[in-house]
Design a protein around this nucleic acid. Structure first.
Lengths: 262, 262
DNA sequence: TAGACTCTGAGCGAATTTGAGCGTATTCTT
DNA sequence: AAGAATACGCTCAAATTCGCTCAGAGTCTA
């Protein structure tokens, strides 16, 4: 068991557990506590983890915050939606993701796609533009992803960046696909958000994209949130879960939107 | 049940109930009252809750609490430097922080300043501009801080944003103080960084500031990293630890730099 | 082959964390 | 308002863990 093997094993433990205890690593890897400590210091220096008493904790954990405290039933649906959305991204594409729990799952699914990670080019496989700080924090560890953050003021509620700085940044960019998380999607009112400031920023992400994919669990369909992001026909594809109301889906299809219920 | 697990559990309780009683936490977590009290004091110090008799209550304004708060163990020197730097910031000021472990501590110390948190204005007490994604992620929970993120491409090693997007964002801003973390600070070569891209971005943070405060542990003094950020006289104040070489400090003072060794 | 360097493991003093004791402060009850 | 009950802060001790140094094994280079 050489150093590389140990570091690899430790990183695997870190990804799985979110933390590593010296004692646990000693018994798992069969090395001395001194060596394990040195390895953990190395992980800390490489910013892959943060040293604590007794071990280390994963760094992405500091961003792995619950947006709101509703990590309940919809988790599984969101993961399926995220996987379906990530499958739409070709290698070499540039995509944009706004904030929200669903787009977070899209980002995670994208990062987990094996055909991206296995490429050995020096160029990143996919470029991800996002105005969500927590999403950026989760993705930036992957060398095969180029992560671009829009500027702006942070909205503590959802970790989204908005404001003039964000809008000017986005106006300078053009992307292949925007994956749009939202809080309401109605055939008439279109896509909407609870915050007008964020809705304004999100609308620019829509304008900057050649293709717009709305991602949302079915509870948001047919509902209107406070501020409009864009009209429904601006959305090219909708990915939602199979619990969606078929009548609403039919109306959306009649507007020319391609609907995927996963 | 280690400290991390306890803090996580306590934050979950706080998010759910809005308050924590010592007695309830003792029975729920199986730790002694003394330990629970210490944890609650920690939450109070981190401005994530407010200490009361019998427990803590959630801070008004922020119902969003981090589920897994990172309990970092910064070197003692960096903590002292961070505290000294944070003390320079008047209420209402706008400050900029670049990336790095030392500026991270400045941000943490700033977030922990009680006179900021105790203000009951609707306006945030301090505005923080940063191009470090991890720093933004740690600070944004505090409702009394307005966190502004520059845009840009993420540099995975240091969580820093750089590139044209970052530079244009910074050029549109003006701040009272820039706290500059760096990898080398030499009387002749000035402040320097390992990455030329980040150095270029950092140099704009220097230009945007009325006052520049360099923060670094003493090991970086007299050293030159690859890329220059700015000349030494552009720095108004240097905060370092007491292990610094006195000859180097004297040379820096002769350049008109105010030197604090804490 | 000699020397230098790196990695690993062990030892030891220092530091952190936890729990308990005890005097003091605060809150509640009467 | 006064007394009782609870909770707090502080200190101290025990256990664990950490950081540092040193020595031995293995590897690379001249």
């Amino acid at each position: 068991m050489d150093r590389h093997a140990r570091i690899s094993a430790l990183l695997a433990m870190l990804a799985k557990e979110g933390k590593i205890e010296v004692e646990a690593a000693v018994t798992a890897l069969g090395a001395s506590p001194a060596t394990i400590r040195r390895d953990l210091v190395y992980l800390d220096e490489q910013r892959l983890a943060t040293r604590t008493h007794g071990g280390v904790v994963a760094n992405s954990g500091s961003f792995d915050l619950p947006l709101r405290f509703k990590i309940g039933r919809a988790a599984e649906e969101r993961k399926r939606i995220g996987a379906a959305a990530a499958a739409l991204v070709p290698i070499g594409a540039t995509v944009a993701l706004n904030g929200g729990t669903t787009t977070l799952e899209v980002g995670r699914a994208l990062a987990a796609r094996p055909e991206l990670a296995s490429r050995r080019d020096s160029e990143p496989s996919v470029t991800v533009v996002t105005n969500a700080v927590n999403l950026a924090g989760e993705l930036l560890v992957r060398p095969y992803l180029k992560v671009v953050v829009t500027g702006g003021v942070v909205r503590a509620h959802s970790y989204e960046l908005f404001g003039p700085l964000a809008e000017r940044s986005i106006q300078a960019l053009s992307v292949d696909i925007t994956f749009l998380g939202l809080e309401g999607f109605d055939p008439v009112f279109g896509a909407s958000s609870h915050s007008d400031a964020v809705a304004s920023t999100d609308s620019l992400l829509v304008k900057a994209a050649a293709k717009v994919v709305a991602v949302t669990d079915s509870s948001k369909l047919g509902r209107r949130a406070f501020a409009q992001i864009c009209r429904a026909p601006n959305v090219d594809v909708l990915i939602t879960d199979s619990g969606a109301d078929l009548a609403v889906l039919a109306r959306l299809r009649s507007l020319g939107i391609e609907v995927l219920a996963v």
